[in-house]
Design a protein around this nucleic acid. Sequence first.
DNA 1: CCATGTATACCGTCCAGTGAATATACTCAA
DNA 2: TTGAGTATATTCACTGGACGGTATACATGG
Lengths: 227, 227
Amino acid sequence: MARPVTDTRERIIAAASKLFYSDGIRGVSVDAVAARAGLTKRTLYYHFRSKDDLVAAYLAARDQPNLALFQRWFAETEGGLPDKVEGIFRNLARSARHPKWKGCGFLRTSAELANMPGHPAIKIGAAHKKKFENWLRVTFEAAGIGEGSRLARQILLLLDGSFAVVLLHRDPSYMETAGEAARSLTELALADAVSPLETPPSATAAPDGRGRGPARWRSPRGRSRRG
Amino acid sequence: MARPVTDTRERIIAAASKLFYSDGIRGVSVDAVAARAGLTKRTLYYHFRSKDDLVAAYLAARDQPNLALFQRWFAETEGGLPDKVEGIFRNLARSARHPKWKGCGFLRTSAELANMPGHPAIKIGAAHKKKFENWLRVTFEAAGIGEGSRLARQILLLLDGSFAVVLLHRDPSYMETAGEAARSLTELALADAVSPLETPPSATAAPDGRGRGPARWRSPRGRSRRG
DNA sequence: CCATGTATACCGTCCAGTGAATATACTCAA
DNA sequence: TTGAGTATATTCACTGGACGGTATACATGG
């Protein structure tokens, strides 16, 4: 056989993506992923050193498509900046009504692996969210919002909050509420940008408060189920 | 022996609470909980029918204390409504700096068990968040905010968003950002309440002087690890 | 002596990861 | 052109252990 490496590898990632997103990391066995990909576990272990590696690959594969989707939703919404921001939430609410929707894979993985702070998958999730936040910031600053960094974080908080809340209540209307709040905050920031005078200097003290944390986690070799 | 039922039962719940919160549901075995409680697994199964029951009891035990804590933080913060709302987030940021902090147990459990929509623990988590949202709504309405329901949902979204984001980045400063956003939205709602009719933009009526702009799941018996 | 509660030992299953062998494509010398 | 050798890719069968849950027996207070 010897199908080109990438084919098999990507089939595995595709299978892992569906299963991990649907049933969680610890709820899916490596055998299950292999079976869904139509091959043996041993083959899977030829392409990935460990389950943790596979989990990281699963999230890495979702990074850019996810980001691009949000950017498309933003770009395709007609109107001013507040409309476009709210458009993200509207589209998200629509997709959250799909029966297979189960929240944000990055956040759910980070919640499940919260006791492994240095896990590669968590790093990838954190980088993904940072990318999103950064894209928002740049977009807002380009629109003349001085405190674009703060607004970006606020929007991010509302977005991830709606992921969590809608997952818990299975009620996508919370995303519309989040969208309204995001719109309000955007309008507020725009108003402040127009009249920049009365703004107290409080603002963004530490631009990027890097969280401390010893990030202890034993690397590839070894069990992943229990720390 | 025959220690009164409640003693043993509560020791088990206390042990489960620490372990489940720290390492997640699927990451903690029933044996581990029993060991931590200083007894045998068989004894644990005398007090709880299944692991799922135990998980539900773990969250149920956290319901009221958690709620009371938020209410205390709100009550103990000096100032007006926006200050008190922001106070919740400030206190939360402080507690999130504790090394053992790992986000919100309710949200993390719902994320981990997202593929079991009817799981009793998820129902308890949903009820808990509803209680919190309801308390906010009542509080806001008592303060004369007509759209107290909407504001309550917005604050809830920011709160749960900060749980998720801070857990991912291990950077509690996001909670301060969420607190600022919550303050802004509260001031906005207050301004709307003060001038309920047509006072579109301008209107610096807010105390701060801030301007305004525009499932299915099989019950107890049986395995819980895989659906 | 019965109800309550606790312990020992066990069952069947699942799971992450591995050893050894096999099949296929590609390389290069005769 | 061919045939041996090698790197790539895949499979079968297995290990050692953990896990949820249970059968059975033992203790102790009413």
